[in-house]
Computed example of a mutant assay.
Amino acid sequence: MKKYLIVVLLVTSTILGANAQLLPSFQFGVKAGLNFSNLKSEDGNWLDASTRTGYQAGVWARIGGAGVHFQPELYLTGKSSEAKLVEENEEGKVTFTSLDLPLLLGTRIGLGPAGLRIVAGPVVSFVVDKNIGDALAQVPEFSEYKNQAWAVTGGLGLDISNFRIDARYEHGLSELSKNDAAPQKVNLWTIGVGYRLF
């Protein structure tokens, strides 16, 4: 009788655990990290940009159970690039401060407190501050930038208990310059560490 009782308890706990994984869930947390960005012209001939380090800090949420989850995020992001205009031989630093809103779909591999995540989706950025070096500000191609940009991002994440670690690549889709003859896009890598509050 004891053996049957133990088997029944094991089967019941397994079924309840599996069902818990299938139920939709909601998570919310905070996150901070670094980005490594550069601003480039599409052809690469007239704008030579080197990568600089920036920051990001904000909040994230995750909605969904086993299988696919939806993960919206909101960050204050500082992006920076060291730019050199090839023809004009001008150099300067360009920085953008933006509110970034990634809308990600992902899946999680693993059960319990540890798991590997794969995420991808669009990012819309609302530029709140633009700072262009004095030398570059005199060049028409650099003096006018749009206040909104789109990108696509994807990467891997790791969950360890309440901690979250992410590494992603973000590819700019929108032309930042208002001058169509001088298209520019921002591409960046990000590394972030987050904590699940609930």
Score class of each variant (00 low, 15 high):
K185C: 02
E91L: 03
F26W: 08
V59C: 02
V186E: 09
G172N: 08
A61K: 08
L116V: 13
N38A: 13
G78S: 11
L10G: 12
R117I: 10
F126M: 12
A120Y: 01
K3Y: 07
E144D: 12
G44F: 03
F96T: 10
A83Y: 11
P122D: 12
S143T: 14
N131A: 11
Q138M: 14
T12Y: 11
R168D: 03
K185S: 05
G29F: 04
L10W: 04
Q138Y: 08
T107M: 14
S81F: 01
T51C: 03
K93V: 12
K146N: 12
D134A: 10
K2W: 01
L103V: 05
T153C: 07
A66T: 08
E175L: 06
A181K: 14
G17T: 07
L85P: 00
P24K: 06
S98C: 01
F26Y: 13
A114Q: 08
E87T: 13
I118R: 14
F142M: 09
L16G: 12
G154M: 05
K79V: 13
P122C: 13
L105T: 03
V11S: 09
S80K: 09
L116R: 09
I191Q: 10
I15P: 02
G78R: 08
V94N: 15
L10F: 06
H171Q: 07
T153F: 05
A32T: 09
V124S: 15
G110L: 05
N45I: 14
L197E: 09
S143V: 14
R196G: 12
G58V: 00
L99P: 07
Y169T: 03
R164A: 06
V94S: 10
E170T: 15
L158V: 15
G106N: 13
Y145G: 07
G17Y: 00
T153P: 05
L22Q: 15
Y4Q: 15
W60V: 04
S13N: 13
A66E: 13
G155K: 11
L116D: 02
W150P: 06
D48T: 08
Q184H: 03
V152Q: 01
G115M: 04
G157V: 01
G17I: 00
T107C: 14
A167Y: 06
L156M: 06
G33E: 03
K3D: 14
D48F: 04
N187V: 01
A49V: 00
K130H: 12
Q148P: 00
G172E: 04
W46D: 13
G92T: 04
I160A: 12
G157N: 05
N162T: 09
N131I: 00
A49K: 11
E170Y: 00
T51A: 15
P113N: 09
T77V: 10
V30D: 05
G172C: 04
S37T: 03
V139A: 15
V86F: 02
P24Y: 01
K31C: 00
E170K: 05
F142P: 13
Y145C: 03
D159A: 09
F26V: 15
L85F: 04
L156A: 04
I118Y: 08
F70L: 14
N179T: 05
S41L: 11
T12A: 14
V123F: 04
G133V: 11
S41P: 07
G154N: 10
L101P: 00
S177V: 05
L22V: 07
I132S: 10
Q56M: 12
K185G: 01
D159G: 08
A151W: 01
